[in-house]
Design a protein around this nucleic acid. Sequence first.
DNA 1: TATTGTTATACTCTATAACTATA
DNA 2: TATAGTTATAGAGTATAACAATA
Lengths: 173, 173
Amino acid sequence: MAYDRRVDTPPQPLTTGPDPATTGPRGAAFLLAQIGAHAAARFAERVGQLGLAPADVGLLRMIATQPGRSQRALAEDLGVVPSRVVTLIDNLEGKDLVERRRSAADRRNHELHLTAEGTRTLGAVSRAAAAHEDALLAALDPEQRTHLSGLLARIATEQGLTPGVHPGYRNRD
Amino acid sequence: MAYDRRVDTPPQPLTTGPDPATTGPRGAAFLLAQIGAHAAARFAERVGQLGLAPADVGLLRMIATQPGRSQRALAEDLGVVPSRVVTLIDNLEGKDLVERRRSAADRRNHELHLTAEGTRTLGAVSRAAAAHEDALLAALDPEQRTHLSGLLARIATEQGLTPGVHPGYRNRD
DNA sequence: TATTGTTATACTCTATAACTATA
DNA sequence: TATAGTTATAGAGTATAACAATA
């Protein structure tokens, strides 16, 4: 049994702070990191009920979008080492969500495809993601949500973040 | 030498997507997780140049804000197990940033305090955080930054996120 | 000889549990 | 007997390196 913070968190007596410059940032960057981690954790809970880890979801989406790609290609896109893809795909194949097919053209390759159940599961993931989004943004009305998305998209573009690519694989981001 | 994604990421041929419902979300929740992870990684780089891990920064800030607290109290606030605090404080004490003092009142306790160098380092962290914030939000003008902060603060409050508390310690969030 | 995927190994991080000292 | 902190151990996750099959 773990601790239950938030029960008696003292109200941060900032009056005792030794130096106003060291009191820490309450800015947007910190909020982004904090909310981002929170969002990732909540999403992990939801897909966990489908028996998936967040990394699995990214992989399923990639395979759905571009079926038939090799494991090495996926490893490059994700920024992870090929041996890790082996483990991840082993897992998904064991659950009958993904299928490896030897390439006829180059028999060293495995072409990756979703199974019927993989496609079905990905549908459930999408519904979970929609529910997740709605719960996460419960504080905002539709107009505010749109505005937020616009600001975030602007940041993501300027920071050079690849559209469909995921946190949580970090090799280097 | 790692892979360089983003060099030849094919432009996501959504036309081949098997099912529009499974193409994955391009919504605010995903952007929050993505940007949040990116922000955390960039911040880790900056404080890494000061010889600190992100977890160290959180601990330094807590000790600065409320000097003299016990390790167990910190463990509860962070949501980690006490033995981990031992390791983290060992590390910070080894760098002469933090000092353990036996409590006179209850000699089982260690009261934690920043050293002079700890205070100095925390100042450097604050400057790094400011530079980080500025770089992360480069795409937005001041008015947009304010607007973003407001929306994020609203979300954080509604989601019950503790004001000063950090991602990256997760036991349960 | 180079490349795809796999297996074997090692390393890092963190939690669990046993232990010491104070109370 | 209970609590603060420490130490020892074990488990999960991931990278590195050696290897087999194919080109």
